[in-house]
Nucleic acid binder design. Structure first.
Length: 723
DNA sequence: CTGGGCATCT
DNA sequence: AGATGCC
């Protein structure tokens, strides 16, 4: 399949038009729902940015402690280095390497614990908020990535600076045609916006990162990692086939995960080209029409999924993993610990959770690494109010029995068990003022008075509707340019963030942390155990009423409030009706620990290596370069200069001759880069190999997922608009 | 010696 | 409630 690109060569113009017009030409073939009516006809060509912060956790720690900048730094979670700074990378440390291996490879490696995500989460939202202050269409992906739809911003700049052609691209652009000129111009403007936003992120927050500029999310994400770290890359439409066709495996396509890749492999599909060429019907049989079409589209670079504004998170969770947990007492203590932290976070958020969920992962030799189980239940109103009102201790005390009840729905504690993870989660988050109960107004009055923040409505919502039509009404800042006098960022980030505005309007108490990462009120543990009644009383008088499966020795240790809860009818009735002696000690069999496991069903080592590499795709460039397929595609005749740096329109995987590491290349001086480029260019490899036949027949099932959530999110967006 | 989140879909 | 996918 090395030369599959050549084999399937086809008229490129046709191929290109088939993707470019995919949104427009939606022939009668499309049986699905009609194209999104919510936003009207989507713009034929969007401009999408993808931001990806460099080794995010490590950057945050280096900001908190600048001395760490000059040493090899690894962020440790349990026994794993989840990420590391570039000093450490030069010494051979990679992400998701075991601490043992890392220390072996780099004895000087400095480790910082990273299990507490508080600082990372806070910084992450600062980045998102900063982006949102320019344009509300920001979608988070994890803590360190953001998508942004800047189509409207680009249009506005186009309208305002008609002569902007002059600053579009420096140098030449390969295959630049007048017809397409406006397309390139828009991407060029997008690249300028991306550069300005990266600069804003750097100057305001001190973070560096990469950006990708393209016409959809898939391509923007794929292209953003071409040059790392702290650089950006624009994908021109004519190079779509390069960046797509050269991906070395299906797993590199965002949206194709482990399971999907395995199912595709079972169909004999391993490469992107395989997926491009497989008859749609074959996929439909396995995945259903919707997923099949989506997969086909991804394989040819089509992704019309909208940038869906993330807004505030829809759930808050806290979890811990461990090698073994086998006693109810330990479980209870862990749950209490997790809940204390979670309730504090929930309180800072300000919203009131309506649902609680407990998730566990059991140890299992066969099914070792996934399979979680969960149970959830509504949160009684009076408990939820304790969370928002700041009575965290009370809230935890009352939530623990709730959690234990859910726990016993999953685990029969009269038998031996072995857990490796516990997760507690609040969801169905309700903004106050959204009428939780009839007495909501009164309680909110009280809680409001206790809130340190003034919950005054900031009347920044003067902006009208701003519904789904892309937020065209938002003012986009003409940052960087000489335009307007205001530089809203300087006040926006530090004093009022978009979320803070939202928080005010919804009476959230959304974080007020300053930009400087130094501030960190350590999570103060809730004092839920302090109010403990006389143990003797609880112990002797009620032991005989203990629920089944409950160890009285454990029961004794509990605070009286929890003991009462455990004896409440609601709790007892919910228990499984097993008749076990309450005093039966829990037998804990020793389970042999499995030290190795097969990653997949496949046996060849490349697959395993691949799987390992892909455990964290965010670093794929550094580790997977050598896997670049032997076939190389052509270099375009021209290169693009931007801000003195050479930008390659090629994809990360196929932009260079096989022996050239893009990461190394990116660190060369621009003039050296240019020289190398000219040299390679003259080797004149075959022009572009459009590797697809008429893909998918252009039928596009419009992604309408954002209809419900989108409108909801957008109803909030007007509050985000900078005043 | 496999992290700690988040989201969506079914 | 679980599966799956992303970081």
């Amino acid at each position: 399949m090395d030369n599959s690109e050549d084999e399937v060569e086809e008229d490129e113009a046709e191929w290109r038009s088939s993707w470019a017009d995919s949104a427009a030409l939606s022939p009668a073939a499309a049986p699905g729902p009609s194209p999104s009516k919510t936003s009207g006809p989507a713009p034929a060509h969007r401009v999408i940015l993808h931001f990806d912060l460099d080794c995010f956790y490590a950057q945050v720690e280096m900001i908190r402690n600048p001395a760490l900048r000059e040493v090899p730094l690894g962020i440790q979670q349990k026994y794993i280095i989840v990420t590391c700074n570039y000093v450490a990378r030069e010494l051979g440390v990679t992400k998701l390497m075991s601490v043992t291996d890392a220390k072996e490879k780099c004895p000087q490696l400095v480790l910082v614990k990273g299990e507490d995500l508080t600082h990372y989460r806070e910084m992450s939202y600062k980045v998102t908020e900063l982006l949102m202050s320019y344009c509300p269409l920001v979608e988070r992906l994890g803590f360190d990535e953001n998508f942004m739809d800047v189509t409207e911003m680009v249009e506005r700049r186009l309208a305002q600076t008609p002569e902007s052609n002059s600053f579009s691209f420096k140098g030449h652009v390969y295959n630049h045609l007048n017809v397409k000129g406006s397309d390139y111009l828009r991407l060029a403007l997008g690249s300028h916006i991306a550069a300005e936003l990266r600069e804003a992120i750097h100057s305001k927050l001190g973070l560096t990162g990469c950006a990708g500029v393209a016409t959809n999310k898939l391509l923007a994400k794929l292209v953003s990692g071409t040059f790392k770290p702290n650089q950006q890359t624009t994908l021109l439409p004519e190079n779509l086939s390069d960046i797509i066709g050269c991906l070395s495996s299906l797993r590199k396509v965002p949206g194709i995960g482990h399971q999907t890749a395995k199912r595709l492999q079972a169909l004999g599909l391993v490469s992107i080209q395989d997926l491009q060429l497989v008859p749609l019907n074959d996929l439909v049989k396995e995945f259903g029409h919707h997923s099949a079409q989506r997969l086909k589209n991804l394989a040819i670079g089509i992704d019309d999924s909208p940038v869906t504004p993330s807004g505030a998170p829809q759930s808050l969770s806290d979890e811990d993993s461990f090698k073994k947990m086998s006693s109810t007492k330990d479980v209870l203590e862990k749950i209490q610990q997790l809940l204390s932290s979670l309730v504090e976070r929930m309180n800072k958020d300000g919203r009131q959770p309506q649902t609680f969920r407990l998730t566990i992962r059991r140890y299992s030799a066969t099914n070792k690494w996934f399979s979680r189980e969960s149970r959830q239940c509504p949160i009684p109103n009076h408990i939820g109010q304790k969370i928002t009102s700041g009575s965290s201790g009370d809230a935890v005390v009352q939530l623990v029995p709730l959690a234990m009840k859910l726990f016993h729905k999953m685990v029969d504690s009269s038998a031996a068990f072995h857990l490796t993870l516990i997760n507690v989660c609040f969801s169905n988050l309700q903004a106050r003022g959204a009428a939780v109960s009839g007495k909501g107004s009164i309680t909110s009055f009280f809680t409001q008075s206790t809130s340190p923040r003034k919950t005054q409505v900031c009347s920044s919502q003067t902006q009208n509707d701003s519904s789904q039509d892309g937020g065209s009404r938002y003012t986009d800042r003409q940052f960087g340019t000489n335009r307007t006098t205001e530089h809203p960022l300087q006040q926006t980030v530090t004093t009022k963030s978009p979320f803070s505005s939202e928080a005010a309007l919804h009476e959230f108490k959304w974080k007020q942390s300053s930009v400087v990462a130094g501030e960190d009120p350590p999570l103060q543990r809730v004092h839920c155990n302090t109010e403990r009644s006389d143990p003797r009383e609880a112990n002797n008088t009620v032991t005989h009423q203990l629920p089944p499966n409950f160890d009285p020795e454990v029961f004794k240790l509990l605070p009286s409030e929890i003991q009462k809860e455990l004896l409440s009818p609601a709790y007892v009735n919910s228990l499984p009706s097993t008749s076990t002696s309450p005093s039966a000690p829990v037998a804990v069999p020793s389970v042999p620990h499995i030290t190795t496991q097969s990653l997949t069903d496949s046996q060849n080592t490349e697959d395993i290596k691949e799987a390992v590499n892909e455990l964290d795709p965010s670093y794929r460039m550094t580790t997977v370069n050598h896997q670049r397929p032997p076939s190389t595609s052509a270099f375009p005749g021209e290169y693009v200069m931007e801000e003195g740096r050479l930008s390659l329109p090629q994809s990360s995987d196929c932009g260079f001759p096989g022996n050239v590491d893009p990461e190394v290349f990116s660190e060369l001086p621009p003039d050296v880069q240019r020289e190398l480029m000219s040299e390679w260019k003259q080797q004149k490899l075959v022009p572009k190999t459009p590797s697809s036949r008429k893909p998918g027949r252009g039928l596009m099932t419009k992604d309408k997922k954002a209809a419900g959530k989108g409108s909801q999110a957008n109803s909030l967006l007007k509050y985000f608009k900078p005043s």
